[in-house]
Simulated scan of single mutants.
Amino acid sequence: MTARMAPQPDHGEQSYRGGGRLQGRRALITGGDSGIGRAVAIAFAREGARVAISYLPNEQADAEETAGWITDAGHDPLLLPGDLQSEQHCIDLVRETEQTFGGLDLLVLNAAYQRDRGGIEQLPTEDFERVMRVNLFAPVFLARAAVPHMEAGSSIITTSSIQGFDPSCSLVDYAMTKAALVAFTKALAAELGPRGIRVNAVAPGPIWTPLIPATGWPDHVPDFGHDTPIGRAGQPAELAGAYVYLASDEASYVSGAVLPVTGGMGL
């Protein structure tokens, strides 16, 4: 939970200034309650989009805080709690967003789950399945449900990771999913390009979000991000512009791309 983090992440609450680049768009952001998802939700709302966020029910406090920032931007937020491991829930997310907003133009497949792994021999099957269902199954379920509702000019954005290109052995299953999302992004971009729907990915480096202290790295958190050329972890607010760009008409000729926001770490 965001409230338990020290220092508190910056989601752009006080710094992001919108310019109407997403005026009238309708967006669904998974994992939109905190971290990168919250930063994207705030930015999208300030750029003129109507925003729905999905999140786990036990993250309601974070979701309501994000909702407050969306409201502050002049829009009524749509809060959609539930577990992305459920195929039906993914279908319902798209249906409720489309029906409430009268359409769906922007789909941000951002939610993810990771845990520190002591080694392949210590990878529990049940937990491995959760990583796969949240990080891979859910994006497929959501895209499959959303594409029939999306018109030319729409955009799908996945959240990959530096882990998809330079994997850590302690995140073997998470890294697998992030590499797979790159292939998913490129394949879907090739399929949907003729329909005028663009598909791209953002690949964050080490970003200070609730996912990090929740991973199980008590010894690593104080030095998190210090191995980047910039020398620090990134803030969620520093990702928002990448998503806004890929969602906007400024990126009208960009599809199948992976945009790194890594503090100088190479893909």
Rank of each mutant, 00 (worst) to 15 (best):
W217R: 15
E191V: 13
F224A: 02
G241V: 05
A179R: 11
Q235M: 13
A179G: 15
P210N: 08
H220G: 14
A187V: 01
P210C: 03
H220C: 06
F184C: 02
A189S: 04
Y245N: 04
P206D: 11
I212V: 15
E250H: 14
L246I: 04
L239A: 06
R198C: 05
T215G: 05
A240F: 10
P236V: 04
T215P: 05
W217H: 13
K186V: 01
M176K: 07
K178P: 00
E238A: 13
A237Q: 09
L239I: 05
V202G: 06
Q235W: 11
V202M: 05
G256V: 02
D219A: 15
V244D: 00
L211T: 12
T185W: 07
R198D: 00
P222Q: 10
A175Q: 01
P236Y: 13
P206R: 11
A203I: 01
P213H: 10
P222V: 12
T228C: 15
D227Y: 12
G205Q: 08
A240H: 10
A203H: 12
T228R: 15
I197L: 05
P167H: 01
G193M: 08
F184R: 02
A240E: 13
L171S: 06
H226M: 12
A175E: 01
A187P: 00
D249N: 12
L239Q: 11
P204E: 02
V182Q: 12
G164M: 05
V221L: 05
D173I: 11
G225W: 12
E238P: 10
V182N: 14
P194N: 07
D166W: 11
H226K: 15
V182F: 06
L171W: 10
I212C: 12
A240I: 11
G225D: 10
D173N: 11
I207R: 09
P167E: 00
G216Y: 09
Y245R: 04
V258L: 10
G196R: 08
G193T: 05
R232Q: 12
I207G: 08
V172A: 13
P210G: 03
I162C: 01
K178L: 00
P204T: 05
G164K: 03
L171K: 06
G225H: 14
P206T: 04
C169D: 15
G196W: 08
L171F: 10
T209N: 13
V258D: 07
G256W: 03
F224L: 03
A233T: 04
D227S: 15
G193D: 05
L246F: 04
I230H: 12
P236C: 10
V172S: 13
V244N: 00
P229F: 06
P222W: 08
P210Y: 06
D219Y: 07
P236W: 09
V172P: 00
P204N: 07
F165V: 01
A251Q: 11
L171D: 01
P218F: 08
A247C: 02
K178S: 00
S168G: 10
P222K: 13
P222S: 14
A257M: 08
T228Y: 15
R198Q: 05
D223N: 14
E191H: 13
I230G: 08
P206Y: 07
A179Q: 06
S255Q: 06
G205T: 03
N200W: 07
G231Q: 11
A214S: 14
V258I: 14
E191P: 08
L192E: 02
A187F: 02
P222L: 14
